[in-house]
């Protein structure tokens, strides 16, 4: 096989994919988010994407907060800086780990579920059936999921922030011997409003990415069960990578002063 042909094929494939995604993004925003709105569908998606993700996000945040406290304590003792544990846990959770880990966990849960559901609807002609019943699939399927993703992810991250800091607090008090009052005072004193809001802004973008990737791969799945399986995998992988890349870009923008 000619290696140049191989390279060319990959490039063309990537360009075609980027084009399809751009068109889908345009339709999702200009058709999916404009009226008419399917309120009932939106409510269902709020529950599925937001409420049902609470256990996963809560547990992730709790253990991450705990492990962060342990690691910072170990590192801190080398510089006699143990007192910084509480504030660094709070900063780490609110700025980075809360939004990113919540985003990745929800990507695994929700992108996959969306891609599988819409993919199955696609291969069983349910999407065609929607169109024949004068219902725009972008408005009925994509819009509600994107709105739910953008709104619920920040809410999940608020909860993840609280639980994560609490995880660090519990480890700090029970394993590392911190004084409860001092630990909490350090947490509150050093935490700025901006630390929290920047994390929430990021998480709204992550919510958009999660819903968009799930819908996009679902809509473009073909070839029966195998195609739906592939769409599910692609949705999770692409959502995760885009979250990490978007996180870097947004962090550098939000914190460049």
């Amino acid at each position: 096989m000619n290696p140049l042909a191989q390279i060319g094929r990959v490039v063309l494939h990537l360009l075609a994919e980027a084009g399809r995604l751009s068109l889908f993004l345009r339709d999702a925003v200009f058709m999916g988010l404009l009226p008419r709105w399917y309120i009932r569908q939106m409510a269902i998606q709020f529950v599925r994407i937001g409420y049902n993700s609470l256990p996963v996000v809560g547990l992730t945040a709790f253990f991450t907060g705990g492990v962060l406290a342990l690691q910072i304590y170990i590192g801190g003792t080398r510089f006699n800086a143990e007192s910084l544990v509480s504030s660094i846990v709070a900063l780490g959770i609110t700025r980075e780990l809360g939004p990113v880990l919540a985003g990745l966990m929800v990507a695994g849960r929700v992108s996959a579920a969306i891609a599988a559901e819409i993919g199955t609807m696609k291969v069983t002609e349910q999407i065609d059936a929607l169109v024949t019943l004068s219902t725009n699939p972008m408005k009925y399927l994509v819009g509600p999921r994107i709105v739910a993703g953008v709104v619920t992810l920040p809410l999940l991250v608020v909860i993840a922030d609280i639980i994560g800091i609490m995880g660090g607090y519990i480890v700090g008090i029970h394993s590392l011997g911190f004084n409860s009052g001092a630990y909490l005072k350090n947490t509150v004193d050093f935490l700025e409003f901006k630390d929290v809001t920047s994390g929430l802004i990021k998480s709204a973008v992550f919510g958009f990415i999660i819903a968009l990737m799930g819908c996009y791969h679902g809509f473009h799945s073909r070839g029966g069960a195998q195609g739906v399986g592939r769409a599910t995998t692609n949705a999770v992988v692409s959502a995760s990578i885009l979250i990490l890349a978007a996180n870097y870009v947004m962090t550098s923008l939000l914190f460049s002063e």
Partner: peptide
């Protein structure tokens, strides 16, 4: 125009939700 049509799909294509 679409509202003048009805269609029965091969696999029925019922919305399973």
């Amino acid at each position: 125009v679409m509202s003048r049509f009805g269609m029965l799909f091969q696999s029925a294509a019922l919305f399973d939700s």
